[in-house]
Design a binder for these strands. Structure first.
Length: 301
DNA sequence: CTCCAGGTGATGG
DNA sequence: CCATCACATGGA
């Protein structure tokens, strides 16, 4: 199934953008997997505005379309950034196909509680280990090889996949993929189990988040209709959730594009250009372009 | 080995 | 209100 985007999309750019951590290369060139809420999408892209959905077709309209922020026109966003000039313009000119994803609130909350004082590879590892306790993903097909190379079987390609298979947890098979544990399951985990996932001092934060969701004092569903300020303060009731993590959840799960998560990279950008987010319609989207830009260029932006 | 990572809570001024 | 400091651990 082919999906056409009105503006631009680049799956590699999205995988590298540091907003979702359960995704990666599926082995074959231009082929990527994304896992969210226990669903698996496998898609292929060879440049341009189209992606070919290889697995996850039946949930495209109901889930993945929204996940990829399909209805936003990123040409408009980038145009405003270019007109503004400065680092905004540089970031917009340099990055093509980025999209700010709409992810599950619970999973986003857990992921960004984990994210504090961790590198992106370390976040991926920790979340993957935690996910061993979650539900297996739903997927169409039996393996990445079968899905990716259906109708195009050459021995050379098969060899590539054999090698990929042995590369470990960053390129798992569908049957190895699991969603993050639900609040109930997370509460049932022992301190040793959490420690073995590499949660470190964040284990008690995860426990508090699960407890608040379970007892109803944090209603992630109901917060979808809350205003930005109420949403922010509700999220910050959770231990280990400060301004930055709450901003990440607002932007990446609730689509609040006014939220500007300010991590070390964005703070470097703001130090160089204090007014970098002024006057933008969707500063949160610009933030994601600038995050990618700053990380690519290192400490000396 | 050291240094840093998509920060936060506690403490003291 | 703002400035420090400890915090667990993996990856470079």
């Amino acid at each position: 199934m082919k999906v056409h985007f009105q503006d631009e999309i680049d799956l590699q750019t999205i995988v590298d953008s540091g907003q979702c951590f359960s995704c990666g290369s599926a082995g074959a060139p231009g082929t990527f997997w994304f896992e969210s809420g226990g669903r698996l999408l496998l898609a292929r892209q060879n440049g341009g505005q189209d992606i070919e959905v290889l697995s996850g077709k039946t949930s495209w309209d109901a889930f993945w379309r929204r996940f990829f922020d399909y209805d936003r026109d990123y040409r408009t966003v980038k145009e405003q950034m270019k007109e503004k000039g400065g680092l905004c313009a540089l970031a917009a000119e340099e990055t093509c196909g980025l999209r700010v994803l709409r992810q599950d609130p619970w999973e986003t909350l857990i992921a960004f509680i984990i994210s504090q004082r961790k590198s992106i590879p370390a976040i991926r590892t920790c979340l993957a280990k935690l996910s061993a306790f979650g539900a297996p993903v739903c997927f169409e097909g039996t393996s990445f090889e079968e899905i990716t190379f259906s109708g195009a079987s050459s021995k050379g390609q098969a060899k590539v996949l054999t090698r990929v298979q042995s590369e470990g947890p960053t390129k798992p098979q569908p049957e190895d993929l699991h969603a993050l544990p639900s609040p109930k399951v997370l509460l049932s985990l022992t301190a040793d189990q959490l420690a073995s996932c590499g949660c470190g001092y964040r284990a008690s934060y995860l426990h508090d988040a699960a407890e608040k969701v379970m007892d109803g004092s944090l209603d992630l569903q109901a917060l979808k209709t809350a205003d930005d300020e109420a949403l922010q303060s509700a999220l910050m009731q959770v231990k280990g959730v400060g301004v930055k993590v709450a901003d990440c959840v607002r932007l990446f799960a609730y689509g609040r594009t006014s939220a500007v998560p300010a991590d070390v990279w964005i703070k470097r950008v703001q130090k160089k250009e204090p007014s970098v987010f002024d006057g933008l319609s969707d500063p949160g989207i610009a933030q994601q372009y600038l995050f990618c830009y700053a990380r690519r260029h290192g400490k000396e932006i």
